[in-house]
Nucleic acid binder design. Structure first.
Length: 478
RNA sequence: GGCGACGUGGCCGAGUGGCUAGGCAGAGGUCUGCAAAACCUCGUACAGCGGUUCGAUUCCGCUCGUCGCCUCCA
């Protein structure tokens, strides 16, 4: 399998540090507000990556942190007049609720910065001990220019950094490039005791400390949004490697930005769409399909038209499963259609899906492969329905393959999506009424029955085997 | 100013030195009382200009345009 490594700027053959095991660390949110759909992209992508690696047989450990102490949190808490700790706890819970609603499994570990203060202080102490960091005024700063590899991830050169020119006020740093690993607390701010007095972790250090704690040095994949490359990930590398002298993470994967009106979605721009608002209106799988429809490194435009397209795709999958399962439920006495095209399509799809995923997790290509299988299943069920007979084993295998591949992509289906077997009796009675009316060509009555069925959330579809019911659209609107 | 990415048919979006991506939308057809779904048919697209090549959308250069990072940001 090939994965693009930000560090080397090329696709590289992936092999794990430890045979059969993969350790992944993803930078999660700083919890000072509700997360928006842009924040959800890395969450979804790395869940899909983990699913795929597991399907390959790897034992995957996915660690995604929650940064619950930070300047932003303190600032926001100050504005709202609540305690910073309380604010962080509330938004951390909201983050878990919102991401849980996506329907994907949780990361294996979700460490919080505030629960790893002693590890963080240890790391700071080591940095000071080696001379890579220094204390001043109760804060500890990293000496950027002393670290030879600085800039290797982002391609930034210290001499050419724009903010070289910007000296910040109130910071007694040796160099404007230096960044805080430990910040002295001002009165009223959350703080912990440390060798340098009461303070809190700087941004970056918590991720270094927690990734090393849970995955160890030289772990396999470190990821996050593209915008974290500099300075966040660059600084994480500096902190870790300044202490250990060995490679911090072997591979770096960065997910492209979600844009609205061609501009990056971010809290500072103010063009955000909250994940929880999205989920009030759409099925979570619409968002997942929207994400996986393009390559993870590409920027992606968040728009109603693009979401509607994803919703249509979800419908297409739903219809395919419904139809296949309808055929599978029936005994059928007719001769089954020629199964060879479906058999071939299943083999081709599995192969193409693998090839696309092996190539830097090309989910868009993998999705195209899946649609090929949908088409073949539809053709088969179409013919089977007309012939009144089917090879249940073959169709079942094809259907299960579809379910499995979509599952790897994070899109799961079950019969509840289209109504299941146990339909309410009133609905079946309405169907009967409509059939009776149709037979006597009383179409006004028939259509009235259909409207009632529609009002109950079901749609009627006439087939050679008679009328069937399917649960209506999965998305909630737009 | 520095670093990087990208510009594909009506739209979204993969990909490749010569061979159908796929989806959505649209047109026609099959089926249906009408629908819905599904199936069949239909679109010779690769920003522009040069170059390399038997041949480039795919490689190289330039131009134009868009975006990201260099400051908090997934």
């Amino acid at each position: 399998m090939k994965l693009y490594n930000t560090l080397t700027r090329k696709k590289e053959e992936f092999f794990p540090r430890d045979e059969g095991k993969v350790g992944i660390y993803v930078c999660g949110p700083t919890v000072y507000g509700f997360i928006h759909v842009g924040n959800a992209r890395p969450y979804v992508f790395f869940a899909v990556l983990a699913r795929y690696l597991r399907s390959m047989g790897y034992d995957v450990k996915l660690v995604e942190n929650i940064t619950d102490v930070d300047d932003k949190i303190i600032e926001r808490a100050g504005k709202e007049g609540v305690a910073a700790g309380r604010l962080a706890t509330d938004y951390a819970r909201a983050y878990v609720d919102d991401t849980r609603a996506l329907g994907l499994e949780r990361p294996d570990v979700e460490p919080k910065a505030t629960e790893h203060i002693s590890e963080i202080i240890d790391l700071c102490r080591l940095l000071v001990g080696t001379g890579m960091a220094y204390e001043t005024g109760g804060s500890v700063y990293f000496r950027v220019e002393k670290f030879p590899g600085y800039g290797k991830l982002s391609g930034q050169k210290t001499g050419q950094m724009k903010h070289c020119e910007l000296a910040r006020e109130g910071e007694a740093k040796e160099s404007p490039l230096d960044f805080a690993v430990w910040k002295a607390a001002k009165p009223g701010e959350p703080s912990w005791e440390s060798p340098w007095g009461p303070g809190r972790p700087g941004w970056h250090i918590e991720c270094t400390a927690m990734s090393l704690k849970y995955l160890g040095e030289g772990f396999d994949i470190h990821g996050g949004g593209r915008d974290l490359v500099f300075p966040h990930h660059e600084n994480e590398i500096a902190q870790a490697e300044a202490v250990s002298g060995t490679e911090f993470a072997r591979g770096w994967m960065h997910v492209g930005m979600i844009t609205t009106k061609e501009e990056k979605m971010s809290k500072s721009v103010g063009n955000i769409f909250l994940l929880r608002e999205f989920l009030k209106r759409y099925d979570p799988r619409v968002l997942i399909l929207f994400f996986i429809g393009s390559h993870y490194r590409s920027p992606l435009e968040f728009s109603a038209a693009n979401l509607d397209e994803a919703a249509s795709q979800l419908e297409r999958f739903k219809n395919c499963f419904w139809k296949a399962d309808s055929v599978l439920i029936e005994a059928g006495t007719g001769a089954p259609p020629d199964g060879r095209p479906l058999e071939e399509a299943a083999a081709t799809t599995a192969e193409q899906f693998e090839a696309e995923m092996q190539d830097d997790i090309n989910t868009a290509g993998a999705l195209a492969a899946v649609f090929g299988l949908v088409k073949s299943i539809n053709e088969y069920t179409e013919q089977a329905s007309a012939a009144g007979g089917a090879d249940h084993g073959l169709l079942g295998r094809a259907r299960d393959l579809l379910e499995r591949l979509l599952g790897i992509l994070g899109v799961e289906f079950n019969e509840a999506d289209y109504g299941g077997k146990a339909l309410p009796k009133e609905l079946l009675e309405l169907v009967e009424q409509r059939e009776t009316a149709r037979r006597s060509k009383d179409y006004a009555v028939a259509d009235a029955a259909r409207d009632k069925i529609a009002a109950a959330g079901y749609e009627i579809r006439d087939t050679p085997q008679g009328p069937k019911l399917i649960k209506r659209t999965l998305d909630f609107g737009s």
